[in-house]
């Protein structure tokens, strides 16, 4: 039995015929839509490498069935830069060396973007550390990650102020 679902992926509508309801959002992205920026580190919601935004919220795509997300709006690491212009979080990760091997990085960046939208951590390093704890980094780039988020958050705060001024 096949199921048709329709998703918006990085702004583009994707109609997908699923021959198998077992396909997770992560495996759909990686193995069927060939969007391999999103990584599989554990496949059990224990590492955060597969973090994407679904309807604006960061989730572990390994623990989400694609079929259940019919109609969802999905944003992945491939969808946040505008051409050569990096998203501020991406740029800040490079500037602060927020990664080494880079495997957890797409998940870290999507998580950071999701976290900034949640607006719970602000520019408090301790809250950022807590709110980014769902993304493991075995290389140990945590200090750079926090610094990158702080810089991106400062930039976002500044542009918000400018907008409201």
């Amino acid at each position: 039995m096949t199921h048709s679902i329709s998703l918006t992926v990085n702004g583009a509508r994707r109609d997908v015929v699923l021959d198998d309801p077992r396909v997770t959002l992560l495996d759909l992205l990686r193995e069927r839509l060939h969007l391999t920026g999103t990584k599989k580190g554990c496949d059990r919601g224990q590492c955060g490498a597969c973090t994407i935004l679904v309807d604006g919220k960061r989730i572990n795509s390994c623990l989400a069935l694609a079929i259940s997300h019919d109609g969802a709006d999905i944003l992945t690491i491939e969808g946040i830069a505008r051409g050569d212009q990096l998203h501020p979080v991406q740029a800040a990760f490079i500037a602060h060396d927020g990664f080494q091997c880079g495997f957890c990085t797409p998940g870290q960046i999507m998580s950071a973007i999701g976290m900034m939208q949640e607006a719970q951590a602000g520019n408090d390093p301790e809250r950022i550390r807590e709110c980014m704890s769902g993304n493991l980094c075995r290389c140990g780039a945590y200090a750079g990650i926090v610094d990158a988020v702080l810089e991106a958050q400062a930039g976002a705060d500044e542009s918000n102020q400018r907008r409201s001024a």
């Binding site: 920026g37 690491i77 491939e78 990096l86 991406q90 490079i94 500037a95 880079g102 990085t105 797409p106």
Partner: peptide, 12 residues
């Protein structure tokens, strides 16, 4: 900064 940085932050 890392010369592979852009590739890594873009998922490429």
């Amino acid at each position: 900064t890392r010369r592979d940085g852009v590739l890594k932050v873009k998922g490429q």
